[in-house]
Simulated assay, not measured.
Amino acid sequence: MSANSMNAKVTWVEGMTFVATSGSGHQVVMDGDSPGKAPSPMEMVLMSAGSCASVDVVSILQKAKQNFQRCYCELSGTRADSVPKVFTDIHLEFVVVGTDINEKHVERAVKLSADKYCSVAKMLEASVNITHSYRIESPQQDD
């Protein structure tokens, strides 16, 4: 198998519950029922987009030596009304929590993730309207 190829296996468990095993040996449970016992495949797509973009944003902010304690991505997705209920719109909002955060670095990190690095979002943007925003918050007393 080449360095650019991946593989996975999805195994039915019961009902509409499946276990997906990645080629690297990691497992994730998914459920096609709504609500199910685990995330649905479409929820996994949404979470994958947020995870992929977050890796980029955190990596870029770390390289820029930004003093952040937390970074998270809040996602919202809108799906088509009829089958197949594909995503029509996905919005990613990055929240960076820290002190003395330079907004230009956050803006740059989000832009680079959106325009260049996030392979999941780049793949989806051919058919999904993907938008991004960010906000910077100061740590609270209990952070």
Rank of each mutant, 00 (worst) to 15 (best):
V10W: 01
V97Y: 03
K63P: 08
C118S: 12
T131C: 11
S76R: 10
T11W: 01
I101R: 03
K116R: 13
E125R: 14
K9F: 03
P41L: 06
V96D: 02
V106S: 05
D33N: 14
T99K: 14
S54D: 10
D143T: 07
T88G: 03
D142C: 05
C71G: 10
V57Q: 06
S48V: 06
E43T: 03
E103T: 08
A49P: 04
G77I: 08
L92T: 00
A49K: 02
K104N: 12
Q62Y: 00
L112E: 08
W12L: 13
M44H: 05
S133I: 08
W12Y: 11
V57H: 04
G32K: 06
P41N: 07
T99N: 15
N4T: 12
T131F: 09
T78A: 11
S51H: 02
P139I: 05
A49I: 08
G50M: 07
F18Y: 13
F87Q: 05
T17D: 05
T11A: 13
N102V: 15
G32D: 10
V106W: 04
L61M: 10
L75Q: 11
E93Q: 14
S34F: 07
I136H: 04
D81F: 01
T88A: 02
K111P: 00
A126Q: 14
E125H: 06
D89R: 11
K37T: 15
P35M: 08
N67G: 00
R79D: 04
F94Y: 13
Y134H: 15
